[in-house]
Nucleic acid binder design. Structure first.
Lengths: 219, 219
DNA sequence: TGTTACATACCAACCGGTTTGTATGTCCAA
DNA sequence: TTGGACATACAAACCGGTTGGTATGTAACA
């Protein structure tokens, strides 16, 4: 039978279609938020119709949750170059991670924003499932950073002792807040400046590598 | 022709009515966001009708802008105890400010959230007027903190030189991010831990008051 | 002081458009 | 021929905002 590959219109590829919906949702919701983005808009952006939408997702919120999960996987794969870099020490890997984050601010025509922070801010108080989904993603990021900090604390000389998980949450919060403030200020440079201070903060936890010039107090 | 003035005697107090609308908007939008809150809901919460709403505000966005401005004034008045405390040194005033912020996490039954961060996250990318309004509030907070840091830098001995405005933005971002992450994690204690680290960070800028125990590196 | 004139404050009903979600149909591959 | 993948059409509720009206405060003037 002739395959008749020239099948008019649309390829049938449910996984890809589902991903098209997720991509569209991410693109639109990062800009307009959850409530500010309609299902019709998402369908138009994905080049699909509403029937298809509700075939793949049982609700708009379900799609947003899938989008947050996808965002988390995507992020982890981007951070992996730093997180799983076995040929570098823990502090160096933290530096690499901060460089990756800084790189997010330098993409032409693309804002440095986060789907998790966006959905969390808007929906955490009213949509428990979404709060849980965002909490999971933030926890995962924090776990990875805490792991590196723990390693660093074992291998290097901490100036004062610290709780790796606490510091990791500190960095996560700074990162989320930087993107938020950068948005209101319209300045990605502000985000980079914060990341530089974060690097100084992390380095300052350890006496070892970048020895700070100690200023003797005269008085 | 008795007019029958059995008028339901609603108080006629335009300023108070306007404020009732602002209060209602703040209460609802802090929880549900801007797009997730309808004008009808706001009117119901304020005990008014839509006609009255649009007499005082020309649009829902105009009310949200007024609410952000009110939130800023409210915040400034709460921080004033620290910011304008002439009987304390700059570093002590920064400590007092952090204590005030920490106090926001301890209010019974009330989440530690920020109208400016909320509106900024949701609307900055699509509503230029709102982005500007939020940017102004964040800038004002930063200015006050930078002022204290500048004073502290003059009076105390900075370990290494720093840019007060940069550090102020760092603290502002951390604060906003802490509220965001605290929301997703459902933990106000997380916010307090971040504020403690922020205090350590600020103290660490100066060699003077809380001398850090220096660990000599053996290797 | 009493009356008239007008602006402000507020209300109830309504409007066109948009919302999420459904019901149903069609096409195609297995 | 059966079932998944998608499209079309539709509905009930809800949206932000408008309209036309009434009640009330204020001020000029008789």
């Amino acid at each position: 039978m002739s395959k008749k590959a020239a099948t008019r219109s649309r390829e049938r590829d449910p996984a890809a279609t589902r991903q098209r919906l997720i991509d569209a949702a991410v693109r639109l919701m990062l800009k307009q938020g959850f409530a500010g983005t309609s299902v019709d808009q998402i369908c138009a952006e994905a080049g699909l119709t509403k029937g298809s939408f509700f075939h793949h997702f049982e609700s708009k919120e379900a799609l947003a949750e899938a989008a947050v999960a996808w965002w988390g996987r995507m992020g982890s794969s981007l951070y992996a170059a730093a997180w799983e870099n076995t040929s570098a020490g823990p502090l160096e890997r933290l530096h690499q991670m901060l460089d990756i984050m800084s790189g997010f601010t330098r993409r032409e025509g693309e804002d440095c924003v986060c789907m998790v922070g966006m959905m969390s801010q808007e929906l955490a108080a009213t949509h428990p499932a979404m709060q849980a989904a965002c909490g999971r993603e933030l926890q995962h990021w924090t776990d990875q950073v805490a792991r590196l900090l723990t390693e660093a604390r074992e291998q290097l000389q901490p100036v004062t002792d610290f709780d790796p998980e606490e510091v990791a949450w500190f960095l996560n919060s700074l990162w989320q807040g930087s993107m938020l403030v950068g948005k209101a200020s319209g300045s990605q440079a502000l985000i980079r400046a914060n990341l530089q201070l974060a690097r100084d903060f992390v380095d300052g936890l350890f006496a070892n590598p970048p020895v700070l010039p100690v200023v003797h107090q005269p008085s």
